[in-house]
């Protein structure tokens, strides 16, 4: 958090003028072997998500990304929809299958560490284990990494 505040104070991070962002608690991003692969520090203004900074486990700066305002509503995305595990788990249960029992979402990445996703595992009504990726308003079944830029054909 201190590192993000330093970046803000030095105008390294580009924030829309009318906002005074609050630095949120850092979230660990899990790699494929369960180790922490990076840290995400979101920036929000009240309920709106403005962007996030990403740091390596040794706190080297990796990137800062600004999210985009909805051109229709003029609002930035709801912070909870992107970074609140309970909200994300509920959305998966509602979207995929009402009878689904899900695990607590884990913040991880799909293929490259810059492609942040929440991983939700669940058992459907047919007692079959499934894994979903969630990014913002999108939910799809997780696939294994392979030599394809983007991902393989499947249910997207």
């Amino acid at each position: 958090m201190r590192a993000v505040k330093h970046l803000l104070e030095n105008n390294f991070i580009d924030i829309p003028e009318r906002f005074s962002p609050a630095v949120q608690d850092p979230l660990p991003v899990q790699g494929p072997e369960g180790r922490i692969s990076s840290w995400i520090v979101p920036l929000a203004s009240q309920t709106e998500l403005l962007g996030w900074a990403q740091f390596s486990p040794t706190l080297d700066f990796l990137r800062y990304s600004n999210v985009i305002r909805d051109s229709g509503t003029g609002h930035y995305p709801d912070f909870r929809e992107w970074f609140d595990p309970a909200t994300i788990a509920t959305r998966v249960e509602i979207t995929v299958d009402n009878g689904l029992q899900t695990s607590r979402p884990i913040l991880t990445f799909d293929r490259d560490p810059s492609r942040l996703v929440w991983l939700v595992e669940g058992i459907d009504t047919a007692h079959k284990g499934k894994r979903w990726h969630v990014a913002g308003g999108n939910i799809w079944e997780a696939t294994m990494p392979d030599e394809v830029t983007g991902g393989p054909p499947g249910n997207h």
Binding site: Y64, N66, G136
Partner: peptide, 18 residues
């Protein structure tokens, strides 16, 4: 960056050396 789907982000800056 076109990721996440249907929104994308503008990354200013990505550390080239990492």
């Amino acid at each position: 960056d076109p990721w996440p789907p249907n929104s994308g982000v503008i990354t200013r800056w990505e550390n080239f050396d990492t």
